[in-house]
């Protein structure tokens, strides 16, 4: 075990993956010798050479197109998109190519070796273009898995799974926690299964669900609610797509209440998808409407960021409203 922050945990996962197989490649804008603007790939060029960890020209559609080709050839491609907000030039490559490679070819070809890493989320005074949480756009696309970790331990285990998983994965890294979140992490290789939510804390009165950076906020809200005597069950979804319906619905069947929080705007967000499925599967057990605590339907703002964010007080209030319904 070693104390690591989230970046170091990601770096450690990349390091182990590259050590394990010679055909694991890591690349993106500024990710070469410099180690990326957040330093997630630092030291990898020194260790594995500039043909295994390298800079790309500044072109996201190129990065993912290249990565699709490399993965289809049988290599492991770990592509970094510098900010989640800049993934959209690669939208076509991801939505129409990555996600459909296996299906359209009748499994003649696949890009299972592809992992797209990208920092996402707000709370860093980044305004419109360094703050967004684009998971819902991709969750609407069958054929690509979406994973996001909440802390260093989860980051390393989930990323190692993602890299060697037989399907392409969009791995969204909560950049607000890159350095802020630290914890004990095994130095050796370990994996955390994709598609499995994590019951972070058991409770009886209400289920509080989130993913990625929202987990830190959720835990703060839950602490406050527990002081009021509310017993909360906290779930980290971990894999957004395909999501763990079983774990979530089992919990709601027990508690009868559900609060979901996400950073992204409310309309068309993934919380809505979960709410729809849960009301379908747990309708007669629900004691109150499923609550979504999220951003509002505006572009991610700068000067009003604090007001905009789905913070712990908003989640706490939603828990109270649900309990008092």
């Amino acid at each position: 075990m070693a104390k690591m922050n989230l970046l170091q945990a990601i770096n450690s996962a990349l390091d182990l993956a590259m050590a394990k197989h010679d055909n694991v490649y890591s690349f993106g804008e500024d990710t070469g010798g410099f180690g990326g603007v957040f330093r997630a790939t630092s030291g990898l060029t020194e260790k594995y050479g500039k043909h295994r960890n390298f800079n790309t020209p500044l072109v996201e559609q190129g990065i993912i197109g290249f990565a699709n080709g490399l993965a289809s050839q049988g290599s492991y491609a770990v592509a970094e998109i510098q900010f989640g907000d800049y993934i959209f030039p690669a939208f076509d490559q991801i939505v129409n190519e990555t996600a459909k490679f296996r299906y359209r070819s009748g499994n003649e070809f696949n890009v299972g070796g592809l992992t797209i890493r990208t920092p996402y989320g707000g709370g860093i005074a980044g305004g419109h273009y360094h703050s967004q949480s684009p998971e819902a756009y991709f969750a609407h696309t069958p054929g690509i898995k979406i994973v996001t970790p909440r802390n260093p331990y989860e980051a390393k285990g989930l990323l190692l799974s993602a890299i060697f998983e037989k399907n392409p994965v969009l791995f969204m890294e909560p950049k607000r926690l890159y350095r802020a979140s630290t914890g004990e992490v095994p130095e050796e290789e370990y994996t955390i299964p994709l598609g499995k939510a994590d019951v972070v804390k058991e409770g009886n009165d209400i289920t509080v669900l989130g993913w990625g950076a929202q987990m830190e906020v959720t835990e703060k809200a839950v602490e406050k609610a527990e002081e009021d005597g509310v017993s909360c069950e906290v779930i980290d979804l971990r894999t957004i797509s395909p999501w763990d319906v079983e774990t979530v619905t089992q919990s709601v069947l027990k508690t009868g209440r559900l609060v979901i929080s996400q950073e992204a705007p409310i309309t068309g967000g993934f919380a809505s998808e979960i709410a729809a499925t849960v009301q379908d599967k747990c309708f007669l057990y629900l004691e109150s409407p499923i609550a979504r605590v999220s951003g509002i339907d505006v572009p991610y703002p700068l000067c009003h960021e604090k007001e905009y964010m789905a913070d712990h007080l908003k989640i706490y209030e939603a828990i109270k409203r649900s309990m008092n319904y």
Partner: peptide
Amino acid sequence: GKGRQMPVH
């Protein structure tokens, strides 16, 4: 720009 974008925009 009503304070919506990062500095220098």
